[in-house]
Simulated scan of single mutants.
Amino acid sequence: MARSPRPRRPRRRVPRALIVAGAIVAVVALIVGIGVVGSLVTNLFQTLWAKPPAVGTRIVAPDESKAAQAARSGEGDTDQVAAAQWLSTQPTTYWLTPELDPIDEVWDRIAHLAAEARDQKASISVAVYGLPDRDCGNHSAGGLDPTSYAQWTKRIGDALRNASDIQKIVVLEPDSIALSSSCGSVSDRAGYLQQAVQNIRGTNTWIYVDGGHSAWHPAAEMASLIQAMGVLPDVRGVALNVSNYQDTAAEFAYAHELSDLLGGTHAVVDTSRNGAGPAGSEWCNPSGRLVGSPGGSYGDGVVDTNLWIKPAGESDGECNGGPVAGAWWPAAAAELTREQR
């Protein structure tokens, strides 16, 4: 028996308004999706192409340096003015301190350094120097309270991340780890440094924590102090010889010792004032010193590069005739550069 055809179900008509609304939602979703994917691709591209510092890396010669300020003022005798002018052109790490670059101003400072880096086709190198109980009450005493320090380093990190197109080298709190045992503040400093690393880290940002120098702590002792900070492997490595005068070869050997003990960590070495080598046990404004090899001159599989970290011509403190720590000292600048002029 033949079946009668099944009656057709009436087609529901979709209101035109719903069709238009659906199309709008789809377009918006596509645009948002493209934006998200684009952001992910951009971040991935930046991460893949971010390269650590190496031989040949040029950092900014900052026009806000004290050498540049002295050069513009023209004060001093002929040798002192010539020294300031020469030093003002040398790529040198800029020191961020809460005294000169407080929480509400540090963003602008970094933004200006980033603009200079773009103009000079260079990288930024900054030393972050505002740790609570900084320098344990010695020549560079000061620093922020713990709450303000967290806010300050977060602001620094935000500003550095905003300059995502620029390579950033961060020397985090020189002397902080090497001094920690004598200051009796290992656990406190570990907490401050861990928080600072998390606040500052970002794409194309290479953080080096304090590694002292070859004539301070034996490598095994220094490695233990670094491990106690709990910042590895969230940093690139250690900064050696900052504000000191040790021979470059000795610092390279020390960097390799630390790397072996710390599982392959890297290093940068300060050569700003080691051209005449150390002056025995004297570290505070010793006489007869010279500027060292320009940054970007040396490196190997462990030492990424040498840098000028301590600005030549700035005092170590009120010792051997010097002014307060960090102040421009024309006589010292002239002495350090006597073979460059």
Rank of each mutant, 00 (worst) to 15 (best):
P62T: 02
Q151G: 05
G263C: 11
A334M: 10
S180M: 13
W49L: 15
S164P: 13
S88M: 07
D165Q: 13
P62C: 04
F45V: 01
V81R: 13
P294M: 03
G263L: 12
Q167F: 09
R155D: 00
A220Q: 09
T265P: 14
A2Q: 15
L113R: 02
T93K: 09
Q151K: 07
I226H: 03
W206V: 06
G301P: 14
A190P: 13
W283M: 08
H112D: 15
N162I: 14
A54S: 12
M222D: 06
A253V: 03
D175G: 01
V238L: 06
S293Q: 12
L40K: 05
S39Y: 07
P330I: 04
Q46E: 12
Y149I: 09
D165W: 14
P311D: 06
T153P: 08
Y298S: 13
A70P: 11
I169V: 02
P15L: 12
P102L: 03
W328M: 06
V186F: 13
A150Y: 01
T248R: 09
G211Y: 06
S65N: 01
A54R: 12
K66Q: 12
G296P: 00
L18Q: 06
S281L: 06
D145M: 11
T203F: 08
D316I: 02
S125C: 04
G74S: 09
R155N: 04
V36N: 07
G317C: 05
P7Y: 13
Q195M: 11
